[in-house]
């Protein structure tokens, strides 16, 4: 059976949820194994085992948590050369793509990023990748061994199968010159009330909100609904709201029960991150905006007038 590896992402000593999603896919494709590097890797290995990893290669070396990408790329290179997996799966996240990029350049094998799915075909692997901003899907056949594929978060559902992984302690193979980009400290800024990824309802704002001074009316609506507040890349780039609120290809991928897009035109950058929402409601003054063509309900009108009224209506209804 094909050897399918998962690069388990460990951030601040905790296993990132994407890792378990990757394992669900790996199990489907062959013998699933995982690599967990850094403080917290041991605990992560147990979790990875429950999700179907047969073997987890573990190193708790502190350097993995302290330096960006290079120690992990070094050790991955050594492990890949030693065990020759057929496919290595990474999450399409900031931390993982930095490791994957260095690894692919070093192995000279290239990679397929931003994939929605990957399957076995004719003894190799074919990845489905959104193209032209998500309007098209291209099927890419990986040519190299190992194939390196980066899967978008939330493309696959994680599921527990209740196994136990064989834990193999490995030597951290870190080049003398690889401890270079050192993380000196971590600062936490104000946390959101409801996390975007976990929210069942999301209220998102775009340029049509007119300016950052109008975002509080979205927060009021979100507060009434118990929703999280998101934003389009345009307003994040403009500095109206922080990056942590960005929904889209390079922001977060969400699939809430209800997504309310306010003043968002629906550029593909954005829609690729939210089009799997169950119900989409759009409020926009332009009836021709692309978002109107994908929304279950599109309301053409002035968001700054509609949203406060909607908030009152929700409060009145919930108050009953």
């Amino acid at each position: 059976m094909a050897g399918i590896w998962v690069y388990a992402e460990i951030g601040q000593e905790k296993l990132a949820p994407i890792s378990l999603e990757l394992l669900a896919k790996a199990r489907e494709l062959g013998d699933a194994e995982a690599v967990a590097l850094g403080p917290g890797a041991g605990a992560a290995a147990a979790e990875l085992g429950k999700h179907g990893a047969k073997t987890v290669y573990v190193s708790e070396d502190a350097a993995f948590g302290e330096f960006i990408a290079e120690p992990a790329a070094d050790t991955m290179e050594a492990l890949v050369k030693q065990h020759s997996p057929d496919l290595v799966l990474f999450g399409f996240t900031t931390d993982s793509r930095e490791v994957a990029g260095r690894l692919a350049a070093r192995l000279g094998c290239g990679l397929i990023s931003n994939a929605l799915d990957v399957k076995s075909q004719d003894g190799g692997f074919v990845a489905r990748v959104p193209y032209f901003g998500g309007a098209k899907i291209a099927d890419y056949k990986a040519n190299a061994k190992p194939a390196i594929v980066l899967l978008r978060p939330k493309s696959v559902e994680a599921s527990e199968v209740g196994g136990e992984a064989k834990v193999e302690q490995v030597q951290a193979t870190i080049g003398a010159n690889s401890k270079r980009a050192r993380i000196l400290e971590r600062k936490v800024e104000a946390a959101e009330a409801v996390k975007l990824e976990d929210a069942t309802v999301i209220v998102s704002g775009g340029r049509g909100m007119g300016g950052p001074e109008n975002f509080p009316i979205l927060e009021d609506l979100a507060g009434a609904l118990g929703a999280a507040v998101g934003a389009s890349r345009a307003v994040v780039d403009a500095g109206w709201v922080p990056y942590s609120m960005q929904v889209g290809q390079t922001g977060k991928t969400v699939r809430p029960g209800v997504y309310i897009a306010v003043g968002i035109s629906g550029a593909m950058q954005h829609t690729v991150g939210m089009k799997a929402s169950k119900v989409i409601i759009a409020i926009n003054k332009d009836s021709e905006a692309p978002i109107m063509k994908m929304a279950d309900l599109g309301v053409v009108g002035d968001a700054l007038k509609i949203v406060p009224k909607l908030t009152e209506a929700v409060k009145a209804k919930k108050g009953k």
Binding site: A104, C109, G110, L111, I112, V126, A127, P130, Y131, G134, A135, K136, I137, A138, D139, Y140, K141, A142, N143, A144, I148, K275, I280, S287, M292, K293, M294, A295, D296, L297, G298, V299, V300
Partner: peptide, 19 residues
């Protein structure tokens, strides 16, 4: 790193009601 085998339309959401 890859060969393009096929390009297809993504599943598009249907437009709903616009008021």
């Amino acid at each position: 790193a890859e060969t393009v085998l096929a390009v297809n339309d993504a599943e598009a959401r249907q437009a709903g009601e616009v008021v």
